[in-house]
């Protein structure tokens, strides 16, 4: 047996053990607070035949639209500001202040501004992802190796060419790191927005279940969120591996 298949076997055993203990607890003691794996599986099947996809679509659209606004804006402004010493100095205190604000605390304000539909969640996701991408790209642009910039300048590269060929790729490490933060945060932002006030989305599934004191519903919604979050994480890791191969070679040591 290879090392990796043994590892997976051990993980599977642990998972089965946890589920078995949970199920046993639910049956022998009470499933009032903890529901049970079987009940959750049944509910999941029921939802999948019903409106789960609709709610997922809503949350997915909010996240997608928010990221589509926040990421490019954040990356671009971060890189541009980071390259200008003056601008960086002027903006620094504001950036620090913005960074210390727990962004989800803006949710009530945004709901008042934009109402109950998808807009406040999109704005929230955009805001969160903008800030995270901005901070990372900003630091990345500050950390560009000036000798590489000089090298290209001597070859006759224009300021724009240097930006495209040196600043952007060397920021990529930072951008990807930002992305690895921003994507899970985008999910959090969207779900919190939905939990506060809304009629649909995965966050709404949780609040709806909670209002009906439906433990199984809460656990099922949490399970779905866990799977979605896991998929997002896996996606960014794959992207990172693909885009930053040179970086891994560097850090692995020579």
């Amino acid at each position: 047996m290879t090392d990796s298949s043994r590892l997976w076997l051990q993980r599977a055993i642990l998972l089965v053990a946890i589920l078995a203990a949970w199920e046993a607890c639910a049956r022998l003691v009470s499933d009032r607070w903890i529901s049970s794996p079987v009940a959750i599986a049944e509910r999941l099947a029921q939802w999948m035949a019903g409106d789960l996809w609709y709610h997922m679509m809503i949350t997915g659209t909010e996240i997608g639209a928010g990221l589509a606004i926040g990421i490019p804006l954040g990356v671009l402004t971060g890189m541009l500001l980071g390259r200008s010493k003056r601008m960086a100095a002027v903006f620094r205190p504001f950036i620090v202040l913005m960074n210390s604000l727990p962004i989800v605390a803006l949710t009530p304000l945004l709901i008042m501004w934009f109402g109950l539909g998808m807009q406040p969640k999109i704005v929230l996701v955009a805001f969160v992802s903008f800030l995270l991408m901005f901070f990372n790209s900003f630091s990345g642009a500050r950390a560009v190796d000036e000798e590489l910039m000089d090298t290209l300048a001597l070859m006759g590269a224009s300021a724009k060419e240097r930006f495209v060929k040196v600043v952007v790729p060397s920021c990529l490490t930072w951008t990807i790191a930002g992305l690895k933060n921003a994507l899970p945060y985008a999910l959090i932002a969207a779900v919190i927005g939905e939990m506060m006030l809304s009629r649909n989305g995965l966050g709404h599934l949780i609040t709806r279940s909670a209002q009906q004191f439906d433990m199984t519903g809460i656990y099922t919604a949490l399970f779905v969120l866990m799977v979605v979050g896991g998929l997002i994480n896996e996606g960014t890791t794959q992207l990172e591996n693909r885009l930053l191969r040179w970086r891994h070679l560097e850090t692995r040591g020579r």
Binding site: E147, M155, S170, L172, W246
Partner: peptide, 27 residues
């Protein structure tokens, strides 16, 4: 100018590093 530290772009392959001058507008 060949500096003491080799200033190759770490995200480009050897061939892409060597050919970079020809990607610039002026060359």
């Amino acid at each position: 100018y060949m500096t003491q530290k080799d200033t190759l772009l770490p995200w480009r392959s050897v061939a892409d590093n060597i050919g970079i001058a020809f990607e610039l507008r002026c060359r």
